[in-house]
Design a protein around this nucleic acid. Structure first.
Lengths: 138, 138
DNA sequence: CATTTACTCTATAATTTTTGTAGGTTTTGT
DNA sequence: ACAAAACCTACAAAAATTATAGAGTAAATG
């Protein structure tokens, strides 16, 4: 399951995507719309900005806005940014790899091999689906 | 990512699967093999038993053993049992459904639709892969 | 150029979930 | 009867997630 953080990130991205022509949008507008704590959402939007998905403007008339096209934002990147690994085990994670403690030899570990396989298949889906797919179905 | 509980469950199932002909196997044998706390593993094996994957025998000479064929144990069932939903959002979970608070109407929610789609694709993989696939690659 | 607005940043508090422990109970083989 | 080993319930500890606080920085505006 996605954390609330990631779920909120998606909601925010969707909202910003739907209102792209409006220019900068206040944190508050989004947080009220979805009933998300202002401060919590603030942190999330900041992460999305640092990751290059959003731009922002300070001061009066400021706010956040998308700086990538919705089709350039795959689900995989949002999930990785806020939730971490997509793989089911650390020992098959591409971005957050860690050896596992239980098995002495990863090369002869069936669990490792199958989970690497699952990861590849999962990634295919999550890299293919983008913010645009979500927006098109709204 | 899988919880340790689920990961340990897989290790135990793999061990029991590899040693099926030995009959009942002690919790302790498995816990020592993988460096898992005896008591923690005990809880896990009990859950696997209640779910119908394992049988057990009490007293001297007792232990646990597989009562399903490895090909009858899909990853999806183990994960659902110990980790819960496979879906990324509660509002698209088949086994642990809960409406989401943010969207007023699920039928017009693009996120819901796309995530339902992701769930279907993920399930295809996790239902297809079974304990047998893991055992074959050991 | 002072004021207001709104994002930026860091730290910390509260809550929830996960992980692990304790200790007694029941069943079984010898 | 005794010892071995699963069964069961409750609780404790640790980690992760969720949320809050408050001071800082930049921009717009009159």
């Amino acid at each position: 399951m996605l954390s609330k953080k990631t779920k909120y990130a998606f909601h925010a991205l969707i909202y910003l995507g739907k209102n792209q022509e409006q220019g900068a949008i206040l944190i508050q507008e989004i947080s009220e719309k979805y009933g998300i704590s202002h401060k919590f959402l603030e942190n999330i939007l900041l992460e999305l900005k640092k990751a290059g998905f959003l731009g922002s403007k300070k001061g009066k008339g400021g706010g956040y806005y998308l700086i990538k096209e919705p089709h350039e934002i795959p689900l995989s990147r949002v999930i990785r940014l806020l939730d971490g690994p997509i793989a089911l085990l650390p020992c098959v994670s591409l971005n957050y790899y860690e050896p596992c403690e239980e098995c002495e030899n990863q090369d002869t570990c069936g669990l490792n091999k199958v989970m690497a396989n699952v990861r590849d298949e999962t990634l295919k889906i999550l890299e293919m689906k983008t913010l645009q797919d979500i927006l098109e179905k709204e």
